[in-house]
Structure formats: structure tokens, C-alpha cells
Design a protein around this nucleic acid. Structure first.
Lengths: 214, 214
DNA sequence: TAGATTGTTAATCGATTAACAATC
DNA sequence: TAGATTGTTAATCGATTAACAATC
């Protein structure tokens, strides 16, 4: 039981473990070794064991890991007491898609309010939630408990909102805008989904695939 | 001019450099030092210089970097000769949003066809492109030149399509499905946008923020 | 020439992989 | 008991950071 704090790479692997373990559980697999799991994950047995030991180590020496126990433990880690409450800022194309996703997928996160600047949208319903004026989100966060802000605005709007977001005291941002909240405030937990950067990195790798240099 | 091959972390930073350099160029900034750029990027001067030196080094000793030259060189790296041609597999909520994004954003990638399994969708137009039957995408890729496949299907459909995708000879996959193409085929260049994993990692970090262990 | 700042080599840091003792 | 497989410590690898000579 080494109990060291899980590093970011380990945390990022956790949802993937959860996906595969859930699949194995549904298949009726009861027991799995670090080697088998590593093969499924495309990693190494060492990494699997190191990763699980960050959280206390769920295995049995000489035997392996119980799929059920593993599933239960990882679930406890990823879905802690009660759902996390999230609000959406920006009900544009991306915002609507992300809201749809959060509502339909089992992620342990609940969408509790939607805000937009567009007067034409305010008052409309989105998946049963009334779209509220962006002017009111700080107040909302301070009155209702909110854990996560989903930022689906343009870069400029995100930049304007940044100080207000800090003001809310919310701990995490799921960031779809091109504004770098991390650079703005170091203490905030930010998970970036930069589609543009992701696609450009792919494009670079594809176009430079067989070139030896650069 | 060390000319070592750029590692994945360096490639992932390239689009962010491009974003900031473009902004500086538009602001009329003509010259910038690695320290100033590091401050903007939230990194270190050493990293900035190391990164640029992977591509040949665009600076001038004692002077700094010309914003114009930097912009031009990074643009050459990210937008090589002509646009990359991409097809979309799966015209659901996410697929439509991603298609909209690719068409509107300046990413050096062009959407040339859309495929879906749903007979109700086939034949409809999506952003001026006719939605084609999924049965025909392999043939399409072999006849037209296609660089990137954007996978916006469910996990199960992605898994079924995997061997066909390999068959097309396409070099890169922009993957929104929960199927791990990397585990299936090591040689394929895959850029994953796993919303679920991303949100769960954020949720984990938020809920464990002030806890010392685990 | 002196000051500034790069390019590049060396040192550090952290994550991954390997090794092995513990133990089922 | 022997074989298997974990938990954990040690070694390796790669990326980041620091240092400094080159040079504008």
C-alpha cells in the first residue's frame, strides 16, 4: 500500500481502465491478471500494477485482480459521493452537443443550468432546462452548489468571463473555448478540449508521417 | 540546427504556439523573446527554445524571434502543401457538430464526404454534402484521395468499421468513438477526443482536490 | 565593446519499465 | 510445495529545465 498521490497521467488512464473493466464485468470475466489487462489496454503489466497501487492496490498476490472488486473500487474513485453539479456557459452548436452528451452519458456529472448571452435564446428550453442570462451565472453558482463550469463560448467571451468564473469559487472548468484558463489562473483545475489543436496535431502527424526530419 | 524529430508533446504544443503567435502578429508585435513567449504560454524560456529548435530554430542570437517569421514557419509546419482531405463517419449529434467545426474553422482540413448507416439520413444534405451510405466509404477512400477519417460513431460501429478503415489505407483517425483504434492497430495515427474520459478525469480531480492521499 | 538572447549541451526531474521479494 | 502473480523497490528512459558558449 504505497499510497502515493496519483499523477495526472495515472488519473487520465483511470476512465479507460473503468471502460475495459466494465466490459469484462459484463462479459462475465471474474478474474484478470495485470498482464492480461495490460494487453487489453495496450500498456505494460508493470504500469497496471503501479497505477492500481496509487490507490491502495486491489489485487491478490499469486492470484490476480477480481474484476468485480476492481470495478467497484474504480467506480468509487471516479463517482464519489453524489453527482457533481455542472453548468453550461454558451448554448451554441458545441454547447448543445456537450449538454446532450452530459445528460445522456453516465459520467457522474449532472447538468443543472444553462446560460447564454443571446437574448433570442434566453428563456428557451434546452433539454428541459431554461436558458438563463449569462449575467446571472455568478449569482447562481453562489446560491446553488456548482462543481464544474462547462465553457462553450468563443475565446473573447471566455476571456471576459474568466474573472467572474474565479469569483464563483467553482473548482473545475471543462474548457471548449480557445481561451487558456490555466495561464490566467494557476490554481483552477482545467480540462481542455481544444478540437482545433487536436485536429491540427493530427494533421501535422499525418502530413509528416514518413518524413525523417522535422 | 539540431533537427531532432519533434516528440509528441512538442507537436501538441505547436497549435498553441500558432494561436499566440497569430495573436501577436495581429497586435502588430514584430519581435519577441523566448522569455516573453514562455510567459504567454505558461511555460519556460528553455522549453520555447528547445521546441523551436526541433524544427530548425527560427531565432536570432542576441535579438529574439521575428513574429512574422515565426508565424510563417509554424504555418508551413501545420498547413503543409494543400488542404488535408477528411471524411466523416457518423452524422449524429456529435458528427454534425464536428463537421460544422471543420467547415468553419481554419484548420487546414477540408471535409469531402459524410457517411452514415441510417437509411433515414442517407441522401440528405449536410452543409452542402450529400450523406452517403456507410457501405461505400472504403471505395470512396480508394478512389478519391482521403487523408483523415473522422470517426463519430458508437463504439460498436467503430469496432465493426476498424478493419475497413485499415483497408482504406488512410493515415490518420480523429476518433470521437469509445473504440481504441490504437490498441487495434499500432501503426495508425490516432488522435482521440474522448469526451467521457476527459470529463471523468476532471470530475476525479475536482472531487479529490483537497484530499492529501489517493 | 557590452548587453541581450539564442542554440545547444548538461543536469534534473518525473514517468515508465524491469526486477524481485512477498505471498496466495 | 511449486507456480503464479502481486506489491514495491530499483533501473531506465524521455521530457523538461538549467547552464553557458556563440553571436547578434
Amino acid at each position: 500500500m504505497s499510497h502515493m498521490k496519483a499523477s495526472l497521467p495515472v488519473i487520465r488512464r483511470l476512465p479507460r481502465y473503468y471502460r475495459y473493466i466494465t466490459e469484462l464485468k459484463n462479459n462475465g470475466t471474474v478474474r484478470i491478471s495485470s498482464s492480461q489487462l495490460a494487453h487489453i489496454m495496450g500498456s505494460t503489466p508493470s504500469q497496471v500494477r503501479q497505477d492500481f497501487n496509487c490507490f491502495g492496490g486491489f489485487g491478490q498476490q499469486g492470484v490476480g485482480y477480481s474484476v468485480d472488486l476492481l470495478h467497484e473500487e474504480i467506480e468509487k474513485l471516479l463517482f464519489p459521493e453524489g453527482k457533481q453539479r455542472a453548468i453550461l456557459l454558451g448554448a451554441g452548436t458545441m454547447g448543445i452537443t456537450v449538454a446532450d452528451f452530459v445528460i445522456k452519458e453516465n459520467t457522474g456529472v449532472e447538468l443543472v443550468a444553462v446560460f447564454d448571452n443571446d437574448k433570442a435564446l434566453i428563456g428557451n428550453k434546452l433539454f428541459g432546462l431554461e436558458i438563463l442570462s449569462m449575467d446571472n451565472f455568478v449569482e447562481f453558482c453562489q446560491q446553488e452548489h456548482v462543481d464544474i463550469i462547462i465553457a462553450c463560448t468563443t475565446k473573447d467571451v471566455a476571456e471576459q468571463l474568466a474573472p467572474k468564473i474565479i469569483e464563483t469559487g467553482v473548482k473545475g472548468i471543462w474548457n471548449y473555448s480557445h481561451f487558456d484558463f490555466t495561464v490566467y489562473d494557476e490554481t483552477m483545475i482545467v480540462e481542455n478540449v481544444h478540437l482545433r489543436d487536436s485536429l491540427m496535431a493530427l494533421s501535422y502527424r499525418v502530413s509528416h508521417k514518413n518524413k525523417p526530419q522535422e
